[in-house]
Design a protein around this nucleic acid. Sequence first.
DNA 1: GAAACTGGATACCTCTACTGTCTAATATAG
DNA 2: CTATATTAGACAGTAGAGGTATCCAGTTTC
Lengths: 206, 206
Amino acid sequence: MRISELSRRSGVSVTTIKYYLREGLLPAGRQTAATQAEYDEHHLRRLRLVRALTGVRGLSVSATRELLGALTELTGDTHRQLGLVLGSLRLAEEPAAEASASGDVDALVEELGWDVHESAPARTALAETLTSLRSLGVPLDWHTLVPYARLAERTAVLDLDQLGGIEDPLEMAERALLLTVLLEPALLALRRLAQENESARRHAGD
Amino acid sequence: MRISELSRRSGVSVTTIKYYLREGLLPAGRQTAATQAEYDEHHLRRLRLVRALTGVRGLSVSATRELLGALTELTGDTHRQLGLVLGSLRLAEEPAAEASASGDVDALVEELGWDVHESAPARTALAETLTSLRSLGVPLDWHTLVPYARLAERTAVLDLDQLGGIEDPLEMAERALLLTVLLEPALLALRRLAQENESARRHAGD
DNA sequence: GAAACTGGATACCTCTACTGTCTAATATAG
DNA sequence: CTATATTAGACAGTAGAGGTATCCAGTTTC
């Protein structure tokens, strides 16, 4: 298909598609002539993924590009790499300030017995949260996070269970990305609802 | 204290503080003369809160204003209102498109037996996630979310346990806001690490 | 009484995510 | 084969967000 059909089928304007091509969010089509290129179903799927990440999840174009970049690095041994890909996904934009609480994070990971990469961006994100909460006068040390981490473990089991039965490695990686990133607002929403419910429950006992 | 001291103690420039005053993120100081106003510790605390929400959490100025607005509505019966405040916090920016999956969310809440407000924004966020995942070809129905919700329940218990021992209602509400909102990136980071770990664990069995 | 500071208003700046327009080449319909 | 539409690629322009800078008249401090 050509660009106009891609636009029609995705609901994204031609100019915006060109913008995504320029920005590297979408791989170039197969050139058939100097002013002609051919796109396929993969481009359509990728385009919808981009819209989901930027629109639903509110990611910036550069953050989206980074996430998608992780996908293409996935070549060999799928299952092992999947973990690395998930682990290497960046969480926020910031170029990571001083990680003054990284010692606490190391201790936490040690206590949990987790096998995670030394340079996983999530470690930095954790350290930053600890640091900023402390600077706001909330006395939170890493021991407090242990029970949260145990619940996260069980969440991860649910997550990986969702990926069963997918054969194509690229498709599985895309699915993993979707479930990891797009489920985030849903999990936070469940937490908020659960907090409201729990607060009501505790009040009822008065 | 005057604005320059507020600036010095918070590390936020005077012009930016003026901007926050204009935008309603910070209450005005007590006017002492036509060109003079007095600020106190409460302003400093609020200013740090604003920086944490916009900086660490990456919230927009308007989203931050809304969250802070919820704080000031907290007047009477603390514990009951706390749940409502937490429940009423908006999650994202979007003015909520059509909630085509709201029926599923109702069914989910019913199944869980949760006592949550009918118009909680988190319901909309959930519905949107379901809708967008489906439009991307991920067959996710609300039953899949039940185990996630059970884990969210236990997370909420941990959250509310953190709030014990705080007397002042406003301070407790501020703490609740901090723990709810600033812990979010940390919880997501834990999930990513847990995924990486779980993936490694499953691979080890090959 | 002079220098420094203040609140308030307004203009300006930078970045992001697009959007519009142009050009030369190509496709398609008659 | 010609007229019309479409295309890739380049580049300028736009709107909104989040500040930043400047100016002013009043106020404080010395």
